[in-house]
Amino acid sequence: MLSDFGTIFLFILAAVALVSMMLGMARLLRPNNPNEEKLSTYESGEEPLGNANVQFNVRFYVVALIFVLFDVELIFLFPWAVVFGNEDLIQQTNGQWGWFALAEMTVFVGILVLGLAYAWAKGYLDWVRPEPKTPHVDSPVPTSLYQQVNEKYKKS
């Protein structure tokens, strides 16, 4: 088992080494002459306005909560997936093992799907849609007059 985790350890080492090598090499090679535009926060070409330190929408938190719950469910799926299709166990029980394990896990997942359905039906997963702001002009000219102008100069 420890040798299996040795592979993961090598992955961790490789990740740390690669990232530090890339960033270190870039630091050595690149010219360094910053200006105001380069140092400003990147917001997809928009001018950054105000402070980034704002209070978050609580919906992010609810999504994270539901994620953690399904994370825990995944932990339970792990050992089940290892033994579910085990040929020795299936042969020892005349094929009943597979169906039994499948049924039990369906019940388990089904119970949690109920929770997801609850959150969905209650609208906890709905995102707040930004309401489009239609510009409103207080004009003494009624809109029907504009319509008539449009009709008059319509290209036929």
Binding site: V72, L112, L116
Partner: peptide, 8 residues
């Protein structure tokens, strides 16, 4: 599983 449902 039921405990997780209640917690959710």
């Amino acid at each position: 599983g039921i405990l997780l449902l209640v917690a959710l």
